[in-house]
């Protein structure tokens, strides 16, 4: 299935900040592996789910599914634990694709928030960025649900 990829400008999501490491104030920034390069949203007719897919530098690793709730599954990297895909069971959520455009971004962001407690070694910087990407590009991502 072909679907549109939305490019992400890394400078919008990488705001350096000051942290204290071993008593020393240092400027820290997100590794380029944590910021998605592209994001896409599409409805998969085969599995009857709406997919939000993230592309990263150095992707192609094995993934595993983490069930967020009855209707949302997160697919994370087995090694890096980066968020690769969110699968939203539209029909299970008793929503149609038009409703999803309204409620989808919030449901997806809540699922990402929950992910930090579901994954053994959470990638907080990555999850926060993915959440922000959905907040900023939600209308474009869920446009495919129309």
């Amino acid at each position: 299935m072909s679907h549109e990829w939305i490019k992400i400008n890394p400078s919008e999501y990488d705001e350096p900040r000051t942290e204290t490491i071993r008593g020393v104030d240092v400027e820290v920034f997100l590794s380029p592996y944590e910021i998605p390069r592209e994001v896409s949203g599409y409805y998969d007719e085969g599995v009857k789910k709406f997919m939000i897919v993230f592309k990263y530098i150095g992707d192609g690793e094995a993934t595993e599914a983490v069930k967020e709730d009855d209707f949302i599954t997160a697919i994370v990297g087995r090694q890096s634990h980066r968020l690769y895909r969110l699968e939203l069971d539209v029909h299970g959520m008793a929503a149609d694709l038009i409703e999803l455009k309204v409620s989808g971004p919030k449901r997806a962001q809540a699922a990402i928030d929950h992910l930090s407690s579901s994954v053994a070694r959470p990638r907080r910087g990555n999850y926060q960025t993915a959440k922000q990407v959905i907040a900023d590009k939600g209308s474009q991502i869920f446009a495919a649900s129309q």
Partner: peptide
């Protein structure tokens, strides 16, 4: 905590870069 140098701190820190 015993990691040496900026390089060591970055490696054990995992997902953040450091700038001094």
């Amino acid at each position: 905590d015993e990691a040496e140098g900026v390089v060591g701190q970055i490696f054990v820190g995992d997902e953040l870069g450091i700038n001094l």
